[in-house]
Design a protein around this nucleic acid. Structure first.
Lengths: 206, 206
DNA sequence: TGTACATCAGTGAACGCGCGTTCACTGATGTAC
DNA sequence: TGTACATCAGTGAACGCGCGTTCACTGATGTAC
């Protein structure tokens, strides 16, 4: 072989890594094979020594991005007490830093809609990772039966992804900041959006 | 003129209408000018008698779709009591019908991420409509100070859009149904996701 | 250890294709007289 | 009312361009002897 044993794998990984950033930034169809290869310091011709097709790279890049997100979450949650894990994730997820750097952020608001329209193969890969993510979020919710924790995990993830989507639509305007802050408050207190009086009233009724 | 006075406007509207469906279905870059014109029963050459560019059509089609959504919401809300308006919107939004028919549904989960990457002109159009939508949602929340109502409107819209996005990623699987149901429950009860006992406890503390 | 050969990651030209856009033209209708 | 002309929405061929993919080739290195 021309290069040392692990060279090809390293190149492969570098392409996937760079692609995962650019695809989240520019969309699943927003950047071409030639430019993606250039990102990795290569020319486009070598692409097919690493991937069967452009779509195969999209799947790998997406997979990589989701794994990185989950790794990031795990690291963060390890540094705080169990009952603060979920709020820790929400805080960093719904930050202006995340909003303004989609290339290094969550794939769901960045690529979700586009991937949901791809081939069944691509969609399955995405759906599997989504399930993993829900599982992980569920782990971050202690002191609640598994079933209830999973429900809260799904609802929180939906609010997080939806808020990020809305905030990015609004750009980096005043509205965007308002959306981000409101979504964060909503996700943080378990989503209770009624004033305390109303909650007390409801509690008495039950 | 070749055709009656209003003919051109009618054709224009037909193109926009058909395009708004196909673009939501296939994405902002998922269908070409020629196919969009064919949808309207025309050939591609006539396109530029109606629009300056493809992007101009995308803006108009998106605008049309958002207006239709809001019109649809207004109609629904008119048929129920004020305190049931919000839940009425949530129920229909987070239905399997909506999930499985993106072409006739909300543009936010369908086109949001892609439009957030377009030119400033396109983005501004989208941001403006988002603000209108938030205002309308706020109107659906009675018995709450305007500021608090707006907060709840934003949080609910984020949960709705995020849930729809997750549900579409999951396809029409068991997971997708679970996501849809959970998101609906969360949005419906104002997002409170804790069991009743916990709520009662919290209420007492305050 | 030194030499000849085989391997294959990476190069860059070329391919077919579909895209957004342009343009000369058409022909049914509105308008002027 | 009838006729000649002007208008312009719509047609379809053609454009330049960038894309994903293919392919003959390169040359540094691993391997066999």
């Amino acid at each position: 072989m021309r290069y040392s044993r692990e060279h090809k794998q390293e190149t492969h990984d570098r392409i996937v890594k760079k692609a995962s950033v650019r695809l989240r930034e520019k969309g699943a169809h927003g950047i071409g094979v030639a430019d993606l290869m250039k990102e990795a310091g290569l020319t486009h011709g070598g692409f097919y020594a690493h991937f069967d097709s452009r779509e195969a790279l999209v799947i790998e890049a997406f997979d990589y991005a989701m794994n990185r997100s989950m790794e990031h979450w795990r690291k963060q949650s390890d540094q705080v007490a169990p009952e603060k894990q979920l709020s820790q994730i929400v805080e960093t997820y719904l930050s202006t830093v995340h909003r303004d750097n989609p290339g290094h952020g969550c794939s769901i608001p960045a690529l979700g809609a586009e991937i949901a329209r791809e081939s069944p193969k691509t969609r399955k890969a995405f759906a599997g990772k989504l399930d993993e993510m829900i599982e992980m979020m569920t782990d971050f919710i202690p002191n609640l039966p598994r079933k209830a924790a999973r429900k809260q995990a799904i609802a929180t993830l939906a609010t997080m992804a939806g808020t990020m989507l809305l905030a990015r639509i609004a750009g980096s305007s005043e509205l965007s900041d308002e959306v981000l802050k409101t979504g964060k408050d909503s996700a943080l207190d378990g989503g209770r959006r009624e004033p305390k009086a109303a909650v007390a009233k409801k509690a008495k009724q039950s």
